[in-house]
């Protein structure tokens, strides 16, 4: 799988290198939020890699699970070691397409993004609203969606079951710049 995504992203970047239709960020923001009666857990990742092809609206996103920063160190350790098993699955990926991308020319438009999200080695199709903001220097994608942790085969021990929500809210804000 890992090889596959590497090839995918490399191919993405290699295609028409001269054409100015690739937009990229290495500092994208993705965070997740879990609300439960016991505690709220939030983690931020500011090192998201995202490559956008403005000709086709196709997008490939990769992030490192260990780049998620939590308020408490213990939360980060449990997350990486026990729940998402970052030593086995160090990355999460998303590969998809922004609908009607060629028709987006206004400053701020809402459309849909559909693709496959892979976390903890498990794939799941995601379809969610996205706000696309196109300016001369940037293409900004923002939005949020919900995922069930059960879909990704993530096991939460019974003792902390009340601390972690069954459904997690994922938010994203990706500021793509032209790829040089």
């Amino acid at each position: 799988m890992k090889g596959f995504y590497f090839i995918l992203i490399s191919a993405f970047l290699a295609q028409n290198l001269n054409a100015q239709d690739k937009y990229l960020t290495k500092e994208g923001f993705i965070s997740f939020f879990s609300h439960s009666i016991v505690e709220d857990i939030k983690a931020d990742n500011n090192q998201v890699l995202s490559v956008l092809d403005t000709q086709t609206g196709k997008i490939a996103i990769q992030l490192l699970m260990r780049s998620f920063m939590f308020k408490k160190t213990l939360m980060r350790e449990h997350f990486n070691e026990n729940y998402v098993e970052s030593y086995k699955y160090p990355k999460a990926t998303f590969s998809g397409e922004i609908k009607n991308f060629d028709e987006l020319n206004e400053e701020q438009t809402e459309t849909e993004i559909i693709g496959i999200l892979t976390v903890h080695g498990k794939e799941k199709e995601i379809s969610t609203k996205v706000i696309v903001n196109v300016s001369e220097s940037e293409i900004i994608l923002t939005g949020d969606f919900k995922v069930d942790i059960a879909d990704f085969n993530i096991k939460i021990p019974a003792i902390v079951a009340n601390n972690i929500a069954k459904t997690i809210k994922v938010s994203f804000e990706l500021h793509h710049k032209p790829y040089k």
């Binding site: 992203i9 290495k26 090192q47 890699l49 992030l63 490192l64 260990r66 160090p90 990355k91």
Partner: peptide
Amino acid sequence: CTGYLLDVIMV
């Protein structure tokens, strides 16, 4: 070090 995407990431 948190890993490698197209680059090595350090926080």
